[in-house]
Simulated scan of single mutants.
Amino acid sequence: MQNLYEVSVGNLDNESYIYTPSIFWKILFFLLVPIESWSQYEAFTQNAYNQSIWWLTASLVIYTIYFVGFYGLAFAKRIATPRFWGFFLPLIMVTDIYEIGTVVATMNMTVLENQMRLLFISPVVLFLWFIIFRYRKVMRYIK
């Protein structure tokens, strides 16, 4: 029988968790970078939605920073600080919402078609925001 008033002895290791990315993040990174590169190229050459050159340039800079963060998540590289990515996440959210709003407004489709497009695009955009959120959270575990 044990003494009920005695403190139990536990083994607490002083090891910390080290983030190791899965192959999923690497494959996704190499799939999305060419798609985004092509998208940016088409935005500058065709400009189908009549966006100004300053917005196209700002979008290029914002999405380049986004993919730098995605690279950090996919390959466990520490880039910038968690505070920077915390400030960057709302910026990318506002940018995506503006881009989607611009596309929906210029296509002149019916309400149902707009809803179907938003229903398809929303999970993709939320997942892309999750990437930066996840990178910010696991950054402290990257050596």
Rank of each mutant, 00 (worst) to 15 (best):
I65S: 06
V7L: 01
P21I: 04
S122H: 07
I27W: 00
W129F: 15
L60F: 15
R83G: 00
N14D: 15
L31S: 09
F120R: 12
F44R: 00
F67K: 06
L118G: 12
Q115H: 14
I65N: 04
I62M: 12
N47P: 00
L73V: 08
M116N: 13
P123G: 06
P90Y: 07
N3T: 11
S52Y: 12
A80Y: 05
V7K: 03
S37Q: 12
E36A: 14
V68L: 10
L31Y: 09
M139H: 05
V104D: 00
N47R: 00
A76L: 01
R140H: 04
V94N: 04
G72C: 03
I65D: 02
L31Q: 08
L118M: 12
I53R: 15
V61N: 08
L91R: 10
A74C: 13
E36H: 14
T81S: 12
L128S: 07
S37E: 03
L12M: 09
F88M: 11
S22W: 03
V103R: 07
E15S: 04
F24E: 08
Y19S: 10
V124T: 03
V124K: 07
Y66D: 01
N14G: 15
I35A: 15
G72T: 08
L31H: 04
N14R: 15
R136F: 03
L60K: 08
F24Q: 07
P123N: 03
S16D: 09
Y19W: 09
A48Y: 11
F84R: 01
Y49A: 10
T81V: 02
E36K: 15
F88G: 08
K26A: 03
L73A: 06
W25Y: 15
E36W: 13
I97P: 05
F120V: 10
T110D: 14
F30Q: 10
I121R: 06
I62V: 12
F75D: 05
K143M: 08
S16Y: 10
V138R: 06
I53Q: 14
T102G: 09
L32W: 10
M107V: 12
R134M: 08
F44Y: 03
R134P: 00
L60R: 07
A48I: 12
F84W: 02
E99P: 00
Q115R: 15
W55L: 11
G69Y: 02
Q46P: 01
Y41E: 02
L128F: 11
F130V: 06
P123I: 02
I142G: 04
I142R: 04
N11M: 11
T64S: 11
I65A: 08
G86C: 07
K137T: 05
V9Q: 15
Q40M: 13
Y98E: 08
I79P: 04
F120D: 05
S122Y: 13
E6Y: 03
Q40H: 13
S59W: 11
K143T: 05
K143I: 06
T57F: 15
Q40R: 13
L56P: 01
S8D: 14
